[in-house]
């Protein structure tokens, strides 16, 4: 229907359903591979499924081993060529689509969203708005501190120091002897915080998210808002899991955007063709 000369779509889907499907797919896939890795160690692995370790399937492993590979020509312990390949694939995806790995693939992000779904029902309008804006703005950069610490410590020691604190590793090793108490604590805190805010780990601590977030400055496909058709309802900003004020920007270049597309006219924006994911300039 038309309202004040603008095309308004009633009963628009409130979220990108295909994203949920992709997220569940990767969560299940990584979960099965992790279980199969444990089974394979005792000779009971499932033949048709990969039994690779979680380290071998983590693109961030490629990032932390760059220094050692460049200086010595070897990988950090437990990191293999596959991590390097995934790192390159992740960069290609980020160059084209932004941190789509975070918003669509990362199982830890998916689990946080699941917990946030519960939190949203519990806390309603207060959900995802608990931190004062100033504090929140500063804390958003702590993930770069984490990134610097992880890269430096890995380079200095030649060991995968982060795995002892990595909630992603802990999540898929809860049944394994490789489980580190530090990782369990960080995972528990992350999931608890997910009940009051969206993606706390991604916003404040994820070092891989910090790397991919930089791609928001130059990615090919960007979130763009047409000012000429925008009705300033603020729905896009309210829906954004990363609290980005989409309704004040023509092009979203915020380093925290995860390309989830939840703000677009395909999802929450009530006006057709107003918030789009596209290349080219802005009208």
């Amino acid at each position: 229907m038309k309202l004040f000369g603008r095309q308004i779509t009633l009963f628009r889907p409130r979220s990108i359903k295909i994203r949920k499907v992709v997220q569940i797919f990767f969560f299940v896939l990584i979960g099965f591979i992790s279980i199969n890795h444990t089974l394979a160690e005792s000779g009971k692995g499932i033949a048709f499924l990969s039994d690779a370790s979680l380290h071998a399937l983590c693109p961030f492993g490629g990032v932390v081993t760059i220094y050692q590979y460049a200086t010595v020509g070897t990988f950090v312990q437990k990191i293999h060529e596959s991590s390097f390949a995934l790192m390159v694939i992740g960069f290609v995806l980020a160059l084209l689509f932004g941190p789509v790995f975070c918003g669509w693939v990362c199982p830890l992000g998916s689990v946080q969203e699941f917990f946030s779904g519960i939190g949203r029902k519990l806390f309603k309008r207060r959900f995802n708005r608990i931190l004062p804006a100033k504090l929140d703005r500063v804390l958003r950069y702590t993930r770069y501190v984490v990134l610097a610490w992880v890269v430096y410590m890995t380079a200095a020691s030649g060991t995968l120091i982060f795995s002892d604190y990595d909630p992603y590793f802990a999540l898929f090793n809860l049944w394994s002897s490789e489980l580190a108490i530090g990782g369990v604590i960080v995972l528990a805190v992350t999931l608890a915080l997910s009940l009051v805010m969206e993606r706390p780990w991604c916003k404040y601590a994820c070092p891989y998210g910090a790397v991919l977030g930089i791609s928001n400055l130059f990615r090919v496909f960007k979130i763009k808002r047409q000012e000429s058709t925008c009705i300033a309802c603020g729905a896009c900003s309210k829906r954004c899991p990363m609290n980005i004020p989409v309704d004040t920007q023509k092009v979203v270049r915020d380093h925290q955007c995860i390309s989830c597309l939840e703000c677009t006219s395909e999802a929450v924006c009530p006006v057709a063709d107003t918030v789009n994911y596209s290349t080219g300039g802005v009208k």
Partner: peptide, 10 residues
């Protein structure tokens, strides 16, 4: 780019 195309691309 629509979400379906993005999903397939990823």
């Amino acid at each position: 780019l629509k979400s379906n195309v993005l999903a397939i691309s990823v």
